[in-house]
Simulated assay, not measured.
Amino acid sequence: MPVDQIPIGTFSRITHLSQKALRLYDERGLLAPAARDICTGYRYYTCPQVERGIRIRNLLWLGFGLSEVEAILEARERGDAATIREHFARRLAATEREAGRLHAIAEALRKQQQDPFNGGFSMSITEPVIKDIPAVRALSLRERGVYQEAIPRMIGELFGYVCPEGGRQPAARIAGPIMFICHDEEYRETDADIEVAIPITGSVNLEGTAAGVVTLPGGRFVSVLHTGPYPGVGKAYERLFGYMGERRLALAGPSRELYLNDPAEVPEEDLLTEVQFPVEDLPPSP
């Protein structure tokens, strides 16, 4: 064996990449061995490949997927700094969102220790009420994605249309709270059908954008007001479904969450979310 060839076991110890992982990277063309024993198929690497192996390990540790690692390394070979920065910016944003989620979980666990019966969240829910809600003209974005990532980003995009930068006066005015509309019949971790809307008055120029002006249907809705962190809003849904069961009401369309204050301006325990279900009467029992 030539002196500059490193057996896969040794290469694995140097780079802290398992042999199973190295075989996968070979199959993908991400880190192919420099030589292979004809009789045994045993893989051998070279000293210059150690740097690439360690770079792959570090990128994986930062949370990048293999496809992203491949794209970053290819961009590095091209000298494409802009693409590398774009990947790192997206990863940083995702990491900060996850850090915020973990911080909220830690706070909920601390509260759970203090009061084991409160479910981990400090919150309150009003008694459900039934109300007639008129149709609403709204600026809307609808796409598929992950709730935690898509909703904040879509809200920011919508506000960019009605609150333009540079002090320019918007043509449209906000006429109600921002809302999230769930079009799925079940909860989806990914590929959720998400709509975010802002009620508006006046005209707005949407040429070349994904947003549109829609009319959200009115009707009979059952509603509760939830006070507390957003992850605890599931209790509001539980209360609404219990109320609907008691009064023989059925869900008649997508549910809505209306965000009545700004999480950047109030503490989590003071966040106000109104949850609305469109309802209709169930037919009488036979």
Rank of each mutant, 00 (worst) to 15 (best):
residue 164 P to E: 10
residue 122 S to W: 11
residue 213 V to H: 06
residue 127 E to M: 00
residue 15 T to Y: 13
residue 195 E to N: 03
residue 75 A to T: 09
residue 109 L to P: 02
residue 20 K to V: 15
residue 260 L to W: 08
residue 82 A to G: 05
residue 150 A to F: 09
residue 68 E to T: 12
residue 79 G to R: 05
residue 226 H to V: 00
residue 22 L to P: 00
residue 189 E to Y: 14
residue 53 G to K: 09
residue 194 I to M: 04
residue 285 S to N: 07
residue 284 P to K: 03
residue 87 H to F: 15
residue 78 R to M: 15
residue 133 I to M: 11
residue 189 E to T: 13
residue 22 L to E: 03
residue 267 P to K: 05
residue 188 R to D: 04
residue 17 L to G: 12
residue 73 L to N: 11
residue 116 P to H: 00
residue 280 E to N: 02
residue 9 G to W: 08
residue 173 R to P: 02
residue 31 L to T: 00
residue 42 Y to A: 09
residue 119 G to L: 01
residue 123 M to E: 10
residue 135 A to N: 01
residue 253 G to E: 11
residue 258 L to D: 04
residue 126 T to E: 06
residue 192 A to G: 03
residue 45 Y to P: 02
residue 32 A to W: 03
residue 156 G to C: 00
residue 78 R to T: 13
residue 177 P to L: 06
residue 214 V to L: 10
residue 37 D to N: 15
residue 52 R to Y: 07
residue 211 A to K: 03
residue 243 Y to N: 12
residue 242 G to F: 12
residue 231 P to Q: 01
residue 121 F to R: 01
residue 197 A to M: 06
residue 104 A to F: 02
residue 105 I to M: 15
residue 241 F to D: 09
residue 74 E to P: 04
residue 272 L to H: 10
residue 121 F to P: 00
residue 278 P to V: 05
residue 35 A to M: 14
residue 243 Y to P: 08
residue 274 E to S: 07
residue 276 Q to I: 08
residue 40 T to M: 07
residue 8 I to G: 01
residue 192 A to Q: 07
residue 158 L to R: 01
residue 18 S to K: 07
residue 85 R to P: 01
residue 51 E to T: 14
residue 12 S to W: 12
residue 249 L to G: 02
residue 183 H to K: 07
residue 148 Q to G: 11
residue 178 I to R: 07
residue 116 P to F: 01
residue 139 L to K: 08
residue 3 V to L: 12
residue 258 L to A: 04
residue 49 Q to G: 01
residue 159 F to L: 04
residue 250 A to S: 14
residue 57 R to G: 07
residue 218 G to A: 02
residue 201 T to E: 11
residue 203 S to Q: 15
residue 99 A to F: 06
residue 204 V to K: 09
residue 231 P to T: 02
residue 225 L to C: 01
residue 3 V to E: 15
residue 35 A to P: 08
residue 21 A to K: 02
residue 255 S to A: 15
